[in-house]
Amino acid sequence: MSTQPSGLVEIPRSVLSIAVGMIDTVERVVVGDARVRTARRNAWEAICADRARAVHHDEVRRLVSQLTVGSSPRSKASQAAVGSSAGRRAARS
């Protein structure tokens, strides 16, 4: 039994190779060499997107922490009023 590929298998491989070469050439002509998608460029764009998401996530977390009870001057004044009225009640009893 021969391990050599037959002629029928070689024809589609060569056609596919030529087609991929033509697509690559057309892409470079249409979008330019600087904008051709590569694995390195895809990876870098993914890293940049991850960093941007992390910055946005940190900003949202910071804003939410500012909104928690007791962080605003108004809520601190409310808490002080509640605390002072509780103190007055304790003094009365």
Rank of each mutant, 00 (worst) to 15 (best):
I18D: 13
H57I: 03
S85H: 13
A39R: 10
V64E: 15
I18S: 09
A34Q: 10
A49Y: 09
I23M: 01
V36T: 01
T3P: 05
S93H: 09
P5I: 03
R40G: 05
R74N: 12
A43I: 04
E10W: 04
E27Y: 04
G32A: 01
L8S: 10
V15Q: 12
I47P: 04
V30Y: 01
I11S: 05
V31W: 04
V60S: 02
V20N: 03
A34V: 05
G7M: 09
I18V: 13
A81L: 00
S93C: 08
D50T: 11
A77H: 15
V64R: 13
A43H: 06
V64A: 15
E10H: 06
G70W: 03
V26G: 10
L67Q: 09
R61L: 12
R61M: 15
R37T: 08
M1I: 02
L67A: 11
N42M: 10
P12L: 04
S75M: 09
G87N: 09
A46N: 07
S75T: 09
A54C: 14
V15N: 11
V9D: 09
V15H: 09
L16I: 07
G32P: 00
S2P: 05
D58F: 15
A34R: 11
A43Y: 07
S84A: 12
P5K: 02
E10G: 06
R62V: 02
S2E: 08
A52R: 14
A19K: 07
V64D: 14
L16P: 08
S17P: 01
H57Q: 08
Q66G: 14
R35M: 06
A91E: 02
A54Y: 15
H57E: 07
S75A: 13
R92N: 08
S6K: 05
V26I: 09
Q79F: 14
G83W: 02
Q4N: 07
S17N: 03
Q66R: 14
G70M: 00
K76Q: 01
T38W: 01
R13K: 06
L67E: 06
V82R: 14
D58Y: 15
S6P: 05
E59N: 10
S6Q: 04
V20W: 01
G7E: 10
A52E: 12
A52S: 13
S78F: 13
G21D: 03
G83H: 06
V82Y: 12
E45N: 06
Q79R: 13
V9K: 05
K76H: 00
Q66I: 13
V26W: 15
M1E: 01
V26K: 12
V20G: 00
A90C: 03
L16D: 08
I18H: 07
M1C: 02
A90T: 00
R28E: 00
P5Q: 02
N42P: 08
R89P: 00
